[in-house]
């Protein structure tokens, strides 16, 4: 078995209030390099909440998360932000591209923030990523000039910009037509199989889930099965 990119043990996330809401309860899982994992379940079962916890975007009420073997629960917000920048790539149901920036600029943003590459290298890598995702001619277009499928592919390119180990996708095909959906599905699976990324996808699409290496089924915030 390859090294676990992300591991979680006993993850629980509750929202405090007049009535305490449990989003995720006692979730334990590990996702390895090159593994493609699908999380399914009914709406409100805690799939997205688990994804945000795994992506270090939210803090668990209890439990621990290890990213490449390093425990993250005691880390400060800035350190978590740095880890997200370098190691995690998010893709959401809606593309969430910044509307004032072109496709190319959107892909360049994470690299510019990380500052690992010089500006010409950043431009070259962003262009290469867009090319790889079939968007060679769309680099200069603003998000409003792109179709839903194209925008989602730009969002995937942006998630890949800093070459992260972990790709987290929250219903990435939920807003796309069949053709665009199949295209995005293929790209995400290729990322795991051909490029060795750990990919976790939250999806309602049974066919998409069936194609995954492993399917985690959730209900009421708990992991009911993992196979």
């Amino acid at each position: 078995m390859t090294e676990a990119v992300i591991e979680a043990e006993g993850l629980t996330r509750r929202l405090a209030g007049e009535v305490t809401v449990t989003l995720v309860e006692d979730a334990t899982l590990a996702v390895h390099q090159g593994e493609f994992v699908a999380i399914t379940g009914a709406s409100g079962s805690g799939k997205s909440s688990l994804l945000y916890l795994l992506g270090l975007l939210d803090r668990p009420t209890s439990g621990q998360i290890w990213l490449r073997g390093d425990e993250t629960s005691t880390l400060e917000e800035d350190t978590l932000a740095d880890l997200r920048l370098a190691e995690v790539g998010f893709v959401f149901q809606f593309h969430f591209l910044l509307p004032e920036f072109s496709a190319l600029e959107n892909v360049m943003l994470p690299m510019q923030r990380l500052g690992r590459l010089q500006q010409p290298e950043i431009g070259a890598r962003a262009t290469e990523l867009l090319d790889r995702l079939g968007l060679a001619g769309e680099a200069g277009k603003l998000p409003r000039q792109l179709s839903g499928g194209q925008s989602q592919r730009v969002a995937i390119a942006r998630a890949l910009a800093n070459d992260p180990l972990l790709i987290l996708a929250d219903e990435p095909t939920g807003n796309l037509d069949t053709v665009a959906s199949a295209n995005v599905q293929r790209i995400l699976m290729d990322l795991a199989r051909d490029y060795g990324r750990a990919v976790v996808v939250v999806t309602h699409d049974r066919d998409f889930a069936a194609a995954a290496d492993r399917v985690i089924v959730m209900s009421d915030g708990k992991i009911r099965s993992s196979a």
């Binding site: 992506g55 975007l57 800035d78 932000a81 370098a86 995690v88 994470p110 923030r113 800093n162």
Partner: peptide, 10 residues
């Protein structure tokens, strides 16, 4: 989105 990308609060 910027924060999920890794931009800090500052």
């Amino acid at each position: 989105i910027l924060k999920s990308m890794g931009f800090r609060a500052r």
